[in-house]
Design a binder for these strands. Structure first.
Length: 473
DNA sequence: TTTTGAGTTGTTCGA
DNA sequence: GTCGAACAACTCAAA
């Protein structure tokens, strides 16, 4: 039986895996391989939390392949050399993989594809990560979309039919035992010290964990998704983001489940729209690759950002700003590798508006600490919050963290869970303890920045960006 | 080409 | 307490 390499990247599943399926359909015995080459994604090589997840997800994929009679080979990069070497060792005639959209990865993959083709190999890539690949969606004028609503109006009608997910193969051909594999430990992905120990109370990386999460979401949270998705004190979010990032479940599979769910149309559409935002983020990243580091809106080149003060930056990172909802979010992030999306917006607004630090500094912290760190989603989210994005919040929309906490954590349960110092503070005082002089000694007595003053300062800084009147002649 | 309508997630102020 | 307006202008996208 001829063999083909199936190059796994962030598609760490067997269900609805187009590259694997294509190899099988073409009559090849697949040789699954993962190549460890983080340098090739610099300066956005995966962060520490992401790597901790990846280690577990790779182990799960290896187990799942073994259970079907196959084997996952682990190799060190550089990628091109690794794939060429494995092809030579195995006699593989073809290489199949699913596409990614990060700028550095796109460039790397193009080079790899050309190199393989030059050697006479069949190299082919597939769509395994998106419902609508970036080049398939344009405005009527043929340009990339910059605004979500028109983008989604183009994509949403396609989804009612025509997007199919294929089932995982029940059995796979064996992989030649002579083909060598690195050990997972050799990759050095798992943390040396077990700071991630508590992550795994809430998360199960790997395909079966992803499917269980999807099942639980559809069964328990979908019906109330419209309201509860904004409530960090409830289990209202899907929590699918890290599973989607690593491709442990495909968006087509999520779509199929949402379309089949017996639920109110509004809840379904809301959940679909969140998948739509993931699609839109990838659309923007693909068409505007510089948006990971540069303000989308060039007008912000003249904005009076504050120079990040190391002490203040550390207080934000550690959840010691003195603003409870902000600190709760950042502590949740540190403890669990994840933060509720509503709270992400609150901490980002505080960072970009109240502290007036450039969004890239916050994005970098998220990148290192989130298990769902995703270049497309992270860049879009931070630019949206900062107001620098193409389709961003208007600049005068500055979140008041006290108001946000009262509205979305009305009983203070979320704050108490993540800030034990405040566990005994009454609800009416817990969102702004400095106004009631109730904060205990080891919690900051007042916010690191005055909320009202810093809000006004941000508005003034934005006002200064306005196009100046032409000078009098 | 020109015009028109619209744009994830908010806050504050004053009637 | 509730409600509507103001907060600015700009740009995108479609008609």
């Amino acid at each position: 039986m001829p063999t083909a390499l199936v190059w796994f990247r962030r598609d760490l599943r067997l269900d609805d895996h187009p590259a694997l399926q294509a190899a099988l359909d073409a009559g090849y015995a697949p040789i699954p391989v993962y190549v460890h080459a983080p340098d090739e994604e610099a300066p956005w090589a995966p962060g520490a939390a992401s790597n901790a997840w990846l280690a577990r997800s790779l182990r799960a994929l290896g187990d799942d392949l073994a259970a079907r009679g196959s084997r996952l080979l682990l190799r060190f990069g550089p990628t091109q050399a690794a794939l060429e070497a494995l092809a030579a060792e195995s006699g593989a005639e073809a290489v199949f993989w699913n596409r990614l959209y990060d700028p550095k990865v796109v460039a790397r993959d193009r080079t790899v594809k050309q190199a393989l083709a030059t050697r006479g190999m069949h190299a082919q890539s597939f769509n395994g990560a998106l419902l609508a690949e970036p080049w398939t969606v344009t405005t009527n004028a043929g340009d990339p979309c910059r605004v979500f609503t028109p983008f989604w109006k183009k994509v949403r009608p396609r989804l009612d039919d025509g997007v199919r997910a294929t089932a995982a193969p029940a059995r796979l051909p064996p992989v030649d035992a002579n083909l060598a594999s690195e050990t997972l430990d050799a990759f050095g992905l798992a943390p040396a010290r077990d700071w991630d120990a508590r992550f795994w109370d809430t998360w199960t990386p790997g395909e079966s964990g992803a499917q269980a999460r999807l099942d639980a979401f559809v069964a328990d949270a979908l019906a109330d998704y419209e309201s509860d998705r904004d409530r960090p004190d409830r289990e209202g979010a899907s929590r699918l983001s890290p599973h989607l990032h690593f491709g442990e479940v495909s968006p087509r599979r999520v779509l199929a489940r949402l379309l089949a769910a017996d639920t109110a149309p509004a809840a379904r559409e809301r959940a679909l729209a969140e998948i739509g935002w993931r699609e839109f983020a990838h659309h923007l990243l693909y068409h505007f690759p510089q948006s990971t580091d540069a303000d989308f809106n060039p007008r912000f080149a003249g904005f009076a950002w504050a120079e990040p003060d190391a002490r203040v930056l550390r207080a934000w990172q550690q959840g010691r700003t003195g603003v409870p909802i902000v600190d709760a979010g950042l502590r949740q992030l540190w403890a669990s590798g994840w933060m509720h999306n509503r709270v992400r917006m609150v901490v980002a607004s505080f960072f970009c508006k109240n502290l007036r630090f450039h969004w890239t500094h916050g994005a970098r912290w998220f990148w290192d600490t989130l298990v769902d760190a995703d270049l497309a989603n992270n860049s879009l989210g931070w630019q949206w919050s900062a107001g620098t994005g193409a389709d961003a919040a208007p600049y005068f929309r500055i979140f008041n963290p006290v108001t946000q906490a009262r509205r979305f954590d009305p009983d203070g349960a979320y704050v108490r869970r993540w800030i034990p110092e405040l566990a005994d503070v009454p609800t009416k005082a817990i969102f702004a303890p400095w106004e009631h002089a109730v904060a205990p000694g080891d919690y900051p007595a007042r916010p690191i920045v005055d909320l009202a003053e810093s809000r006004d300062a941000a508005l003034k800084a934005f006002a200064a960006l306005r196009t100046p009147e032409p000078a009098e002649a």
